[in-house]
Amino acid sequence: MLARLQQILTLGALTGVVIWLWVCLQQGRPGWALFGALALLGGHAFVLGIEFLLLAAVHGADPTPRARAAQLLGAWWGEVLHAPRVFCWRQPFRHAAYPDHLPTNAQGRRGVLLVHGYVCNRGLWNRWLQRLRQQGVPVVAVTMEPPFGSIDAGVAAIEAGMRRLEACTGLAPVIVGHSMGGLALRRWWAEHGDDARVHHAVTIGTPHQGTWLARWGTTPNAREMRRHSPWLAALASHEPAGRHRRFTCFYSHCDNIVFPAATATLPGADNRHLPGVAHVHMVDHPAPWQAVQALLQAPKAR
């Protein structure tokens, strides 16, 4: 569903650029042709710029060090380049390019479950899927549908992915969630609360304590990610004491979606700050990948 929507939006934008260029060049206006094409293709840069201005403005008393202007500018540019790769290529056209890897000889080898975030699908994880497959690591990447429903709707997809990994490996997997995916995995874990089923959870830019930006969201899952939302309070009330020690949370003072920055941390978790990295770009930052590699190489309990 989401892939089809993003296909339509991407192809529609490209069609608009071609029509604009043709009309302007027919009228002998090359300057307008160039300006319009850049506006259509680079309009997301303007939207991202607003997000970065907002995150700088609402930093307030957040304990995370305030990002310098150069860091914000670098993170903005990184996101300008990275976002189209994800939302206009990987997710709409390449979401099935790397299937789940469940080899028949994987018993006793720890697997990985990948959970995407808001307005995303499994194509977000293409680089991870490719590299994990090359390493022979059993891996499943879920797609949670519907894309604009409650976060609770993702529980079934996570449970199905977990069962496939458990049957394949016989071991509890590492679960990695980006953005809203971290909340979905917490919701799944609260409902299917056997701690033995999860080796460790890694979240990347997850609004564990909500995000200021969600106040503008109107979909059910966006409203659930607002600061101090009833959904977040209910989730926290269903988690046992000590659960957060099983989490590694990556967050950034340049996260243009989840801010103030410390809202992406959990008390008692291994919270790791990634300076100067924006929200989507964090998925391909080497630090989360290296953390998961270390977890996969850790000795297995008897």
Rank of each mutant, 00 (worst) to 15 (best):
Q209T: 13
L5G: 12
D152A: 15
G205Y: 02
H82F: 14
G74W: 15
A57L: 10
H279Q: 01
G242Y: 00
P299C: 07
A96H: 15
L21V: 14
I151S: 02
P146H: 01
P260G: 02
V47S: 05
Q6Y: 14
C249F: 01
L11W: 04
N221I: 01
W22R: 05
H82C: 12
P138H: 00
T203H: 00
H238L: 12
P138I: 02
V17Q: 00
V292K: 08
V280D: 12
H116K: 07
A278V: 11
Q135N: 15
L38W: 09
M162E: 04
G12M: 01
P286Y: 10
L129H: 05
C249S: 08
M282E: 09
K300A: 15
A190F: 14
A61T: 13
M144E: 04
S237D: 14
R245P: 08
N271S: 01
C88E: 04
L34Q: 07
I19C: 09
D195S: 14
L34E: 05
W77G: 03
L72M: 05
W231T: 07
L21T: 13
K300F: 13
L235R: 01
C24H: 13
A264E: 04
R66E: 11
R85V: 15
Q91S: 05
F259L: 06
Q91D: 07
R122H: 06
A298T: 04
P30C: 00
F259R: 02
